[in-house]
Nucleic acid binder design. Structure first.
Length: 222
DNA sequence: GGATGATCATAT
DNA sequence: ATATGATCATCC
């Protein structure tokens, strides 16, 4: 359910983000009529979904950037008292069967990372959700330097995927971008390419950004 | 303590 | 079943 209309311009969006900087999640939830969960164990996406409502994201669960008219992706990211990201950032599902024109340029990862509105959220774990504070939002445009590294990571990983080497992919691969499970649990199954080029069941995976990159982004170093 | 692998809720 | 939103929890 949309609680805010979609932003009509970048200025509009950034004005909204600037307005809520410094607010606690408790204040935001109250203003937008949202119930604050006790903890996030059973509500892992709650913070991100709250910010979607507040800022007027309109993509729903479609595989496109959150602010559809502006082509901007929204990411909330938990940070510690020093401003460092505390978690990796999920970007997109890994296309395990590939697709016709497999290329970085047309990939969902690139599509989502071209323009990202990062909204840091201070506090995690033991800190009561209502008291966690919204930090200063940052609109980030992927630079050619960062893109070069992401493209290398993506191509290396997708090569494994398409050559049936899914079983050999670990979270240790990739400088900025890596692949990890993205599933309800470890028994979840979808279909991927097997060692013999056959289609066979495998765990769903997602592309995630390492904190090595997001830390630099939040520090406005890239 | 940080990173990798596992997991939870919801919408369609 | 698969996309969205992520954080949890274990291992090193």
């Amino acid at each position: 359910m949309l609680l805010s209309a979609p932003p009509t311009s970048i200025a509009d969006l950034m004005h909204r983000v600037d307005t809520i900087a410094g607010w606690t999640l408790g204040e935001l939830a109250a203003k937008f009529g949202q119930v604050i969960p006790e903890n996030l164990l059973h509500h892992k996406g709650w913070v991100g979904q709250l910010l979607e409502k507040v800022l007027g994201a309109d993509a729903g669960n479609r595989a496109i950037p959150d602010f559809t008219a502006l082509h901007i992706e929204l990411k909330t990211i938990p940070i510690n008292s020093q401003g460092k990201p505390q978690e990796s950032t999920y970007i997109a599902v890994v296309p395990l069967l590939g697709y016709p024109d497999l290329s970085w340029k047309t990939s969902e990862v690139r599509g989502k990372l071209r323009q990202v509105l990062w909204v840091p959220i201070e506090g995690r774990g033991d800190k009561p959700i209502a008291r966690r504070r919204v930090g200063q939002g940052l609109l980030w445009f992927m630079s050619p330097q960062v893109e070069a590294i992401l493209q290398t990571d993506w191509q290396e990983l997708m090569e494994y995927v398409l050559l049936g080497k899914l079983a050999h992919i670990t979270g240790r691969m990739g400088q900025y971008l890596h692949i990890r499970p993205k599933a309800a649990n470890s028994r979840s199954l979808t279909y991927g390419i097997g060692p013999e080029g056959d289609i066979h069941p495998t765990l769903p995976r997602g592309f995630y950004l390492r904190t090595q990159l997001t830390e630099q982004i939040l520090a406005q170093k890239c």
